[in-house]
Each structure stands twice: as C-alpha cells, then as structure tokens.
Design a protein around this nucleic acid. Structure first.
Length: 527
RNA sequence: GGCCCGUUCGUCUAGGGGUUAGGACGCAAGGUUUUCAUCCUUGUAGCAGGGGUUCGAAUCCCCUACGGGCUACCA
C-alpha cells in the first residue's frame, strides 16, 4: 500500500512514533501566539517520546521576509524548545523548507487531476472578480468558485480536452483546483473540540497549485504532514474552518487511513476588549509581543522582545503554558520538564484566552526569586561593565542578594540600585518633609562622627551597633531615625536592609553621604 | 451576509447532575519587617439570558444574545 512512498515515510508510519511539527511562515517575527503553538507541540512530542519538527512554510514568495527564518530559530533556541528535525539540522524528511519541495506538491496535484479529483482552471483574476460580482448581483449568498460556479468558468471541466491541451501548450497561466464533491458531510474528530462536521456545499474548489507553480498552504501541509509521518497536527483555531478540506485532501490522495489527528488550539485574545491579540495591543499596553526584539526590514519599525524586556524564558514558558491549558491540579509553577510530564491535549481549553501581562510579570518575579544568586550577580556585573561602572564581583553579589526579592526584572538590579554607586543628588521630598528634622540632623551628625572613629572592620553589624549606641546616648528608638538615615544614604524612603547597603558602599561613603545630606537638606530647608 | 467555534469572579482557570462553586493573578484589609518589597492571613468578585430533561442542573438538550475565527492564486 505504501509502495509509492519514500522508505523513511513508510518506516515512520509503521513505528507509530508521535511526530508533530511547528510550521511557521517566514513572514516576520514570531508572534507570542505562535510561540504557544510551538510550545504545545513540543510538550506533546516530548511527553510521548516523539519528534518535534520545524518546517518552514514559505510557499508565498511575495511575503518572504529576510531574517525571519533565523528569527524563528533564535526564538525557539532561547526558549529551549529544541527541534529534532528541521531546517537547521536536517533530518530524514529533508528538505524542510516547502519552497524546496515544489516538485513533490506538483506531482501529487497532477495525480489528483489525472484521477479526476482536481482540475486545471484558466480564469484570470479579472474573470474571477466578474464571477463574484455576477453572483453577488444574483443575490447568491456565498459567491465562491464551487461545484456550481465552476461549470460557468474556464477550466478543464468545461473546456474541451483539445482546448485545455492547447492552453497548456501555449503557456497560458493556470492553477489546479480541488474538485470538491457536491453536498457531502465531511467530519473529523478534533482532539480539543470533538466532532466537527462541515458539508462540502460550504467548501469551495480551493486552489492547490498557484499560477507560479507553488502549492497553497492546503496542499503543501497535507502532503508534507503525510510524507513526514506527522501523527498529530496541533495548530491555531484559525485553521479549524479549513480542516474538513484537509480531510478531503487526505481522502483524495489516498492517505486517509494514516491521516494525523487534529487539535485546534484556542486563540490568544486582546487583554481588553475583543479580538485576536495583535502587535497593536502590545504597543498600546506597553508589553512585548515577540519573543526576541525585531526590526522590520521593510518599515524599519523596531519592537522590543520579551527577552530584551527582561522576561526569563522559563517564566514566559510557564505563563504561556497556562494560557489555554491547565494541569487539573493547583500547581502554578512548572519547569519545562514538569510541563512535559503534566501536559495532555485533553486538558486544553476550548475558549480563547485574554493575554494578561500582569500574570506574566508575576511569573517573572517568581522565577527571579528562584534564580541562583551567582546568575543574578553575574548578570549585574556584566551589565555594569557595559555601562562602564566599576563594580567588583563581590559587590555585585552583595547587591543582588539585597535586591533579588524586590524586583520583577533583572534590569532592576541596577535601575533600583543606583545609590550603590553614587550618592543621591535628589531626595524624596515627601520623606524629607516627614522625617528630616532637627533631631534627625543631630543624630546623623553624631552617627557620622561615631563612624569616623570606629575601629575594626566595617560590617553591617558594626554599623548597626554603632547606630544603636548613638541612639541610646540620646534616648531615642531606631524608628525615629531610620527613615532619615535611609533618605540620606539613598535619597529614597524605600529599599532593602539599610545596614546591608552601608556594608556595600563602605564606611567612608556612608560618612560622606551623611555630611552631604546634612549640608544639602538643611540648606534647602532654610531656603 | 454565509460557514465553523466558543461563553464560570476584572483576567487565567477547576468543575464533567447533589460542592458553602475551588485555586492563581489583580485589587483591598490586617500581620511580620527599620521603610518599600517579599512573606503570611483574610476579604473582594463569577456560572450570558430563556426554555426544557430531571426529585435535583455551572454540569445534559434546544433557542436567543454576545464574542471569536474563516470566507484570497496569505498562511
């Protein structure tokens, strides 16, 4: 039965190994929804010990965007969604770029024509427009090229064999259309939505081969999925309406008994209002929509990616996994390995999910708290180096430790900690008004003095003990002074452990900042 | 318009005839903390509407409404 197929296809079909594919078009940056589709495919494949294949659907030459392929590869790599076969490493079903498989599709299309399951059509775009106008005028509800209208068009069904041959020989432009049967229910059992039934009366004679010789998506994806031994097609819901057409194609091509199972994923929706999530929404609400930054080579428009915005890949994965799927338990945090273990198509929801960036931020924060200290401090260290700010690895580690529980993004390690490197120039006015007074100035002056004469190694403990002594001498509690001290050292009323900060910036700097604050703030108050 | 799919707190969701409708984000309050954050506790808020079926419906069926997708020689 498989005698006409490549050997590897037969082998794959025989082994029953799960094989799924992620099949984006290289028309630009990958949208976050595409990433989720890739993720679900990956999880399903790995859950079942199967293969995850990357295929590039570049059959529309007019929409090809340079750099898009590399972008796709880079995005998957960043997220750790490793492919088993694809354009990067090849594989038994190579090539994995549809433009390089042109002949394969043509062969199958011609076979369909021969078997009277498809036909040549010679209609020009103008003639097609005319047809639609005519049908509209005649109040036809659905003006399409179908089993009725094809009888009044120029194709190998209406034209004589001689004329068809003449036109082909002459080099007239032609396409191949599927000869969709009249009124027949096509049903498929979707893994997410269960039975879906469509009558062929609602399916038009879809173009299989375009006039440039390239296949359309419909033909190419069916042929490739078959030849590549794909067992499960997991893709976005936007493909659901054409799924019955694909079933019809499998049937006509004689492959229905090994047809893959389908799972149509719910869409990712706008955070507010209605509709499919788009780049505009991301712009409007100030969050990324692409995994990596992307500069549109045509418009030059730049979009910051999740990576550059400071999202950790594990956080993005976790967030995305739960957008449309749930484990059925109350577990929220999942590593990629845990996701693989827990994943199942049965637990994918049916309805669209609104994209809520707040939850993504929460996941990011959680994962930052889980990050090894060394990683955070290494990040901070290289970041500072690139900004030509001097910082020892030890200092970077200390800062990371102080800040790690109060940040959502790694970059906040330096944006929220500028005072570790320079004395504040400005002081939070509200705190000044509330906490900066004669008493504070007096105590802080004493404290500066006490620190000056302090002996031994300066540590956070020493700083603490010294302050306690000063306060005791003046019969005051810690609460009376700490905010003013923080203000003097950092310029702000909020932040991590003060004595820890002092330890990092050192005794001299603490004294310097106290004096500076006393001078500057006292002066300003008088003025 | 036609075809297809969907509808539980503001958001992500659990639930598959009998539950005080559960969890998470967010928000609010309280506690811990030298401040902020973290953390802990508590609270807030939901089955789109109408008909059936049933002793009993968030759960099953139908209708309506609303939402979404598709309707190209794009994927």
């Amino acid at each position: 039965m498989h005698s006409d197929l490549p050997k590897f296809t037969v082998e794959i079909v025989m082994t029953n190994k799960v094989r799924v594919r992620f099949a984006p078009s290289p028309t630009g940056a990958l949208h976050i929804g595409g990433i989720r589709t890739a993720l679900y495919n990956y999880l399903f494949a790995k859950k079942h010990g199967g293969d995850f294949i990357l295929r590039i659907e570049d059959t529309d030459q007019t929409r090809f965007v340079p750099g898009a392929e590399d972008y796709i590869l880079g995005s998957l790599a960043w997220l750790g969604l490793n492919t088993d076969e694809g354009i990067a490493q090849g594989g038994p079903c190579a090539p994995y770029r549809q433009s390089e498989r042109k002949d394969i599709y043509m062969k199958e299309a011609l076979r369909l024509v021969e078997e009277d399951k498809a036909y040549y059509a010679f209609d020009t775009p103008e003639e097609l427009d005319e047809m639609r106008e005519r049908l509209k005028a005649a109040k036809v509800v659905n003006p399409v090229y179908d089993n009725v209208t094809r009888m009044s068009m120029k194709n190998s069904i209406t034209l004589s064999q001689e004329e068809v041959q003449q036109r082909l020989d002459r080099g007239d432009p032609w396409v191949i259309r599927l000869k969709v049967p009249k009124r027949e229910d096509v049903r498929l059992q979707d893994l997410v939505r269960d039975w879906v039934v469509v009558n062929t009366a609602n399916i038009d004679d879809k173009i299989l081969i375009k006039s440039d010789g390239m296949p359309t998506y419909h033909l190419a994806n069916v042929v490739d999925d078959h030849l590549m031994g794909i067992t499960h097609v997991i893709r976005g819901e936007e493909w659901l309406p054409s799924a019955p057409l694909h079933v019809l194609l499998y049937r006509f091509l004689g492959w229905e008994n090994t047809m893959p199972r389908f799972a149509h994923l719910p869409l990712l929706l706008k955070p507010t209002g209605n509709g499919k999530l788009s780049k505009r929404d991301a712009l409007k609400h100030g969050f990324p929509i692409f995994p990596l930054s992307w500069k549109d080579p045509e418009t030059g428009e730049f979009s910051e990616g999740f990576q550059e915005a400071g999202y950790l890949p594990e956080a993005l994965i976790n967030f995305l996994a739960l957008l449309g799927w749930n484990p059925g338990t109350e577990q929220e945090m999942f590593s990629l390995e845990e996701l693989i273990e827990a994943f199942s198509i049965e637990r994918i929801g049916k309805s669209g999910a609104k994209f809520d960036i707040e939850k993504a931020k929460w996941f990011n924060q959680q994962y930052i708290k889980l990050k090894p200290a060394a990683e955070l401090s290494a990040f901070l260290h290289t970041e500072l180096a690139s900004q030509h700010i001097e910082c020892s690895p030890e200092k970077a580690a200390a800062i990371s430790e102080l800040l790690r529980e109060r940040i959502t993004f790694p970059a906040e390690l330096y944006t929220k900690g500028t005072y570790f490197f320079a004395a504040p120039d400005e002081y939070d006015e509200k705190i000044v008004a509330k906490k900066w007074n004669e008493e504070a100035v007096s105590i802080l002056s004493h404290y500066a003095l006490a620190l000056e004469t302090l002996e031994g190694v300066f540590t956070s403990e020493a700083a603490h003990i010294t302050l306690n002594k000063v306060l005791e001498e003046n019969n005051l509690g810690m609460g009376r002074i700490l905010q003013a001290l923080r203000l003097a050292l950092t310029g702000s009323g909020a932040g991590p452990d003060l004595f820890g900060i002092m330890d990092v910036i050192g005794r001299e700097e603490v004294i310097h900042r106290l004096r500076k604050a006393i001078n500057q703030l006292t002066y300003e108050k008088k003025a």
